[in-house]
């Protein structure tokens, strides 16, 4: 069976992942809503995972390291989403807002 390694060159996949990372970065930097920032971070983590899987598939298909790393990234992303969203809910309850600009009581 022909596989993706023959049909699609590696730089294409890496460029896709890079573009996704940059889009996520833009989202994380530009959103005012804290949930929106979290969405951008999730996109960036996904871009990293695409890279890990691409390197695993193209360079070392018989070593599991790439896949296990991607799984750890997914685990950390899930934990991060849970804690982050819990914090957003707590902030909303205390301040009645989810805007990152308005939660600035630590500013000197």
């Amino acid at each position: 069976m022909p596989s993706m390694t023959e049909a699609v060159p590696l730089p294409w996949v890496l460029t896709l992942a890079g573009a996704l990372f940059c889009v996520g970065l833009f989202g994380a930097l530009s959103r005012r809503n804290t949930v929106g920032i979290l969405l951008g971070i999730e996109l960036m983590l996904n871009a990293v995972n695409i890279n890990l899987i691409a390197f695993w598939r193209y360079l070392e298909p018989n070593v599991v390291a790439g896949q296990t790393f991607a799984l750890f990234v997914i685990t950390v992303a899930a934990a991060e989403a849970a804690v982050g969203l819990a914090m957003i809910i707590a902030i909303y309850r205390a301040r009645q807002t989810v805007n990152a600009d308005e939660v600035d009581s630590l500013r000197g």
């Binding site: 685990t75 899930a78 934990a79 849970a82 809910i89």
Partner: peptide, 12 residues
């Protein structure tokens, strides 16, 4: 994951 779960519950 366990710590994150407990933390999320405690925070929220």
């Amino acid at each position: 994951l366990t710590v994150a779960m407990i933390g999320a519950i405690v925070i929220a």
